[in-house]
Structure formats: C-alpha cells, structure tokens
Write a protein that binds this DNA or RNA. Structure first.
Length: 660
DNA sequence: AATCGTCTGCTTTTT
DNA sequence: GCAGACGATT
C-alpha cells in the first residue's frame, strides 16, 4: 500500500480510486486529476488482489490508450502492467470480431475499410443504383449511413428510397467482400455479444473490472457495448465530464453520462472539483459560463492556488489587429519573462481562423505547430503501398485493386475498368473470370492476366510458412516498376527521395510482422491508428495553433482564445440547430485549457468569405464577466510601450513567488 | 490523360 | 477568398 500513497490523492480522488465493486461514476471536471485517479484505481485494484489480466480500460483514441499505458507502467511492476488490457473501443471490437465474426456470417480474416475505401465503394454502388435523374453524393451517403449505424437505427434499410437502397447494397457488398467499415466494428461486436450468449459470457468472464474514459463522448453503441461486457453485476467505472461533451454532432450522447443511473442502477457517484491546473481567476470565468447550461450534473471547480493574473477580454478592430496583437503579446511575454514558445497556445473555433495567426507568426519569425487541418492524409505513396499490401492480403478489396491497377499504368484502361466495375462481383474476381476476359481485346486480356497472375503468385508466396510480407511487398513494388512510376510523378528529385524514404520506413515497420497473420495485424493497426497524433507531437516545438475541439484534454500555461464573436462562437449553425449549449461547453473547454493566463479576443470587423463583416461580441463574454475578468481593447494595448497585462502578470508572478 | 477554367459553398473530427 | 469538384478542351 505504500506505493498507493505515492499518488497523494485528495479525499474525493481517493474514494473514487478505492471504490470496490458495483457501478462508479466519476465526474471529473477539467484539470481535476482524472488520469491520476484512473491510474491509482488500477493500481489499487491490483493491490487488492484482482488479477491484472481481468482489468479492461477503454479509451477513444490511440493517443489516450498509449498515455494510460505509460502512466500505468510508471506506477507498477512492468509484468503486471502489461497484463492489463488498455484499448480503444474500435480495437477492442476488432479483438471480439477476430474471434467470433463467423457467428455473423463473416470470416475472421475480414478486412477493415477506411474512409476512402468506403467512399469508393459507395460511389460505385450509387453509380449502379441511381436512376438517370437521381444524384447522391457519396460523402453525404457515408455520413448518413454512419449516423444510422451509430444511433443504433436497426430497422433494416429498404429499397424504397435511393439512400435505403444504397445502404442495403452497401451492406451486402461489404459482407461479400468480407469487409467492415469503422462503424460496423461496433455494430457487429455488439451484435455478437447481444445475440450469442456464449460469446457474451466469454467476454464478461474475461474481464472483471471495466474502466471507460471520456464517457461523455460515448454514443449509443458504445454504451451498449460497455453494458454487454459488464454483464449482470456490472463493475463499471466510467470517467467523464458532462460539461465537456462537445461531440454530439458525431453521435455522442450526453445522456449516457447524465442518466448514468438509468443504465447502471445505484452507482456510487464521485465529483472531482478541485482543479490543479488553472488559477481561480480562470476557473471563476469557467464556472460563471457553464452554469448557464440547463442539462448538467452541476459542478463548481475550485483551486487552492493564488488568484493569478486576471482573464483579459480584448476587443479588436478587426481580425488583422487580432492576429497582430496576439502574436506580439506572445513575443513580448516570451522575451520579458523568458517563457518558451511551447507554453503558448492559440485556440479558435474553425480551422480557417489559423491563417491570419500563421501569417503574423511568420512575420515575427516565431516557430509554431499547427494541429489538425489536413495534409497528413495526403501521403500518396503510403496509401499506394498499403493498397499493395491490402491486395496481397485480400484481393477482393476493390478500392485497393483499383488503386494499384493504375499505379503504375498497366495497359488496363479506364473503359475496361468501368466495365469490370459494373459487374456485381468484386473487381478482382471479374478480372480473373474468362467470361469477362473474352469481352476485351487480346492485348487488354494479356495485361489483365499478367496482373492477376502477378497478384496470385505473391499470394501463394505469402501463404507459405515463414513468409516475409515486407520482403514480398518490396518485391512486388520493384517488379511492378512502382518506384520508377513514383519518380516520374514527382516534380523534384528531393520529393521523390522523400517519398521513397517514406515507403522504406513503412516496409521497415512491416518487417517486424512475419507471415500472413502478421500482415493482417499490421494492416489492422494501420487502419485503426491515425498516426497523426504522433506526427503532431514530434513536429517541432513552438506556439501551438489548435481548434477548440482538438484542444480538449490538453493544457497550456498561456492561452489565447480568439474569435469570441456571435456567429463564430457560438457558431451560426449551432443557433439554427439549437445546439448553443454545446458551443458553451466548447468555450468552457477552451477556457479550462489555460493554466496561468488566459486572453480572450473578439473582433468588431472580420473577413468572411472575402468580405469584411461587422461582428458582435459573443454573448458568452457577458456570462463570464465578474471578478478576475477585465476588459480592454487591442488599440489601447498596442499603444502602450509596456502593456497593462504584462505588468499585472509580472506582479502576479511576484506575488506567487512570495506566497510559495 | 492532363490541364485549364468555372462553379459552388463554406464547423467541429476519431476510428 | 479560396479550395475542391467537375466539365470542357487540347
């Protein structure tokens, strides 16, 4: 137990960590030491004699899972720590399905479709299904189908509407391809547990204690999965914060946490309200804001720390002045107080708001890292190689076949492909069939058989014992002339070198996975892992530019929250859709990221869609007003050689020094 | 097949 | 105002 004291928990944290059996709801406000409590609880359970391999912790993202593993590893015997299952919802489902997919008529070696595979498949199906005068955007269809699956809309789709017909055919096609999309992983894992008692019992007995992180973000299916895994005597511990529920637009149900006792009767409920992150000035603003929401459990964050610098609310002339002021203030603070760049973050509602800030930072030669947006997805060569690997594993994946069919060009033209696609079987099977081959020219037929033989030959080599997928894949790429094609399509030699290097990196990763089974695991991991967070973390240091959504779970000593205007925060659309409460929570999330100082700005004039538009300040600013919040304007501050808040911060810092 | 021009429509994002 | 999609043109 001495190890347990290392956690140094407050009374609420301790009561949560040392709760025994039965449902437990931990309402963990922002910055109240949530991860520490989870870790402590796991350590405590093991100290009580519960075997580590019967503990399951579920998170949303790989990043969170990784983080939790690390924290747990730091706190206990490595052998024990490794026995604990810490997994994302999706990879847990993959685990369940790899064991039991046959119960639903799938094979256990099913493949997982990512978003672009999904779109490709839908596009094909829409093309085949829609009448001449009908159109349906694949992206829209995908969104609607995803929504339907996640909300547990289990009424089978019908042929009556175009969407219904597409949905039906899409689902049939997936089954034929022995493939699942991300949503299916959840839907089907739930089906396995719900309709197959022996499977349910297996998993319920496998895990004695369940922990679920970020419970406010769970959707219906995820709640059901947790319920099914927990069984009749649920030892379920969920951690979350209803005030930080900001993902209802992608299916998260706040009601899961608000009505927790309906799903898991008679829970123990622990509220964590002591905040270890922010100053009282910041927490005051956060508390005053969030109490305006009706549907909530109710919490009041407090801190034992000294008051701290006041929260600044600044009115700016326009978005240009906003960018100038925010960046020059950052430079100013950095230089007068020697604060490293990485201690600053600029938070905003929409990605495009980062533009003016980026430009201003570049002018001042301040390093920054931009989180989110796009560009990680655009690694063409990686997608190519993964497509090759996918074909090797499972050539009935149309999207993958389609991709490698043209990289490099193989003499199989668009018309041929189009014809092959209009058959209702999978593309590779069509290409292989003599009936289809008879419909094309001799030359095309030769190209097709060369291609099919090429794939089949490598598949045979893969299935031999002790095969090396990485070596095979490299062979495939060389034999098909992929590298020459890559070179040809690059504008500069540097670019082609970089891309080739990326491919080698990928192959090196893969070389640790032997045999067909290893390749399958590798592909699973790649599809379920978005390596973006890793890339973000290592992409250099500097000021962080990040959306409010992406900032959840992070903290920064000095936060600048920009664009606090009506129509932007709350966003115009939220007013139409009646989700202003969620915008308030989003603002709350932003405020509570700040540790030492918080500056909130709004512009009176902003460029929108190429035009300068007058803007009103956000109504939320009225709500946060009170002690520890001061208002000023950008112009005033720019005209002062030593700005007011720098002096005040300085004073506050001195005060803190003396206090401690 | 590739490139140019025109049109449209515009949060948030993980797996 | 700008990116992305799509269609016409070479």
């Amino acid at each position: 137990m001495s190890r347990f004291r290392m956690f140094d928990l407050n009374p609420e944290q301790e009561s949560a960590a040392t709760h025994g059996k039965g449902p437990l709801l931990i309402l963990a406000g922002a910055g109240t030491g949530k991860t520490r409590v989870i870790t402590a609880r796991i350590v405590w359970l093991i100290a009580q004699g519960h075997p580590p391999n019967r503990i399951l912790a579920v998170t949303f993202t790989n990043k969170a899972a990784k983080e939790m593993k690390k924290r747990v590893l730091d706190m206990m015997e490595a052998d024990d720590a490794r026995e604990i299952t810490i997994s994302t919802f999706h990879s847990l489902c993959v685990r369940i399905l790899r064991q039991s997919a046959h119960l639903l008529g799938y094979k256990e070696n099913f493949s997982i479709l990512d978003e672009s595979d999904q779109s490709g498949l839908l596009k094909k199906i829409i093309h085949r299904t829609a009448a001449k005068d009908e159109t349906l955007d694949p992206a829209v269809a995908r969104a609607l189908i995803s929504k339907a699956k996640n909300s547990g809309w289990n009424a089978p789709p019908t042929e009556e509407s175009l969407l219904g017909a597409v949905y039906l055919r899409y689902q049939n096609e997936l089954k034929m391809l022995n493939a699942m999309d991300f949503d299916d992983l959840l839907v089907l894992a739930v089906q396995v547990l719900r309709h197959h008692p022996e499977a349910a019992t297996h998993w319920q007995e496998r895990y004695e204690f369940l922990l679920v992180d970020e419970f406010q973000d769970t959707n219906r299916l995820q709640l059901e999965l947790v319920s099914l895994l927990a069984g009749q005597a649920p030892n379920v511990c969920v951690v979350g914060d209803d005030d930080q529920s900001i993902y209802s637009w992608r299916g998260a149900e706040v009601s899961n946490i608000l009505e927790f006792e309906r799903h898991f009767p008679n829970p123990v409920i622990v509220k964590l309200e002591q905040n270890y992150r922010s100053t009282p000035a910041i927490l005051g603003a956060a508390n005053r804001l969030i109490r305006n929401n009706a549907r909530r459990r109710g919490k009041n964050l407090w801190s034992a720390a000294g008051e701290g610098a006041p929260v600044q609310v600044l009115a700016m002339r326009d978005d240009r002045e906003e960018a100038e002021l925010v960046t020059s203030e950052i430079a100013n603070q950095r230089h007068t107080q020697s604060i490293p760049w990485e201690h600053f973050a600029v938070l905003y509602r929409t990605n495009q708001q980062s533009r003016p800030i980026e430009e201003a930072l570049r002018r001042l030669k301040i390093p920054y890292r931009l989180i989110g947006g796009k560009s990680f997805f655009d690694r063409r060569e990686i997608k190519d190689v993964i497509a090759y690997a996918t074909c090797l594993m499972n050539p009935s994946n149309d999207a993958a076949i389609l991709r490698i069919l043209r990289t490099p060009p193989r003499g199989i033209g668009a018309v041929t492909v189009e014809n092959a696609l209009s058959e209702s079987r999978n593309l590779f099977a069509v290409l292989q069939s003599p009936e289809f081959q008879n419909t094309v020219s001799t030359r095309t037929r030769e190209a097709i058989t060369t291609f099919c033989d090429f794939i089949e030959a490598f598949r045979i080599r893969l299935s031999t014992p002790n095969s090396q997928p990485a070596a095979l894949l490299q062979c495939m790429l060389e034999e098909s002339g992929y590298f020459e094609d890559l070179q040809r399509s690059c504008k500069t030699p540097q670019e082609s070198l970089r891309r080739e290097e990326n491919v080698r990196d990928l192959l090196r990763d893969l070389s640790r996975y032997p045999e067909s089974e290893g390749l399958r695991r590798f592909l699973d991991e790649i599809t379920l892992e978005n390596d973006r967070q890793d890339k973000d973390d290592q992409s250099g240091l500097g000021v962080t530019l990040i959306t409010l959504h992406a900032a959840k779970g992070l903290e920064f000593p000095h936060v600048y929250l920009i664009g606090a205007e009506d129509g932007l925060l709350p966003h115009q659309r939220s007013k139409v859709e009646n989700t202003v409460d969620e915008e308030r929570r989003l603002f709350y999330v932003g405020i509570t990221r700040a540790m030492k100082s918080l500056t909130i700005s709004h512009s009176l004039q902003r460029m929108k869609y190429g035009q300068s538009v007058a803007c009103q300040r956000s109504p939320f600013l009225t709500e946060i007003a009170g002690d520890g919040v001061v208002e000023s304007t950008g112009t005033k501050i720019l005209n002062q050689p030593v700005s007011v808040e720098t002096a005040e911060n300085h004073f506050a810092r001195l005060k803190q020094l003396f206090a401690s």
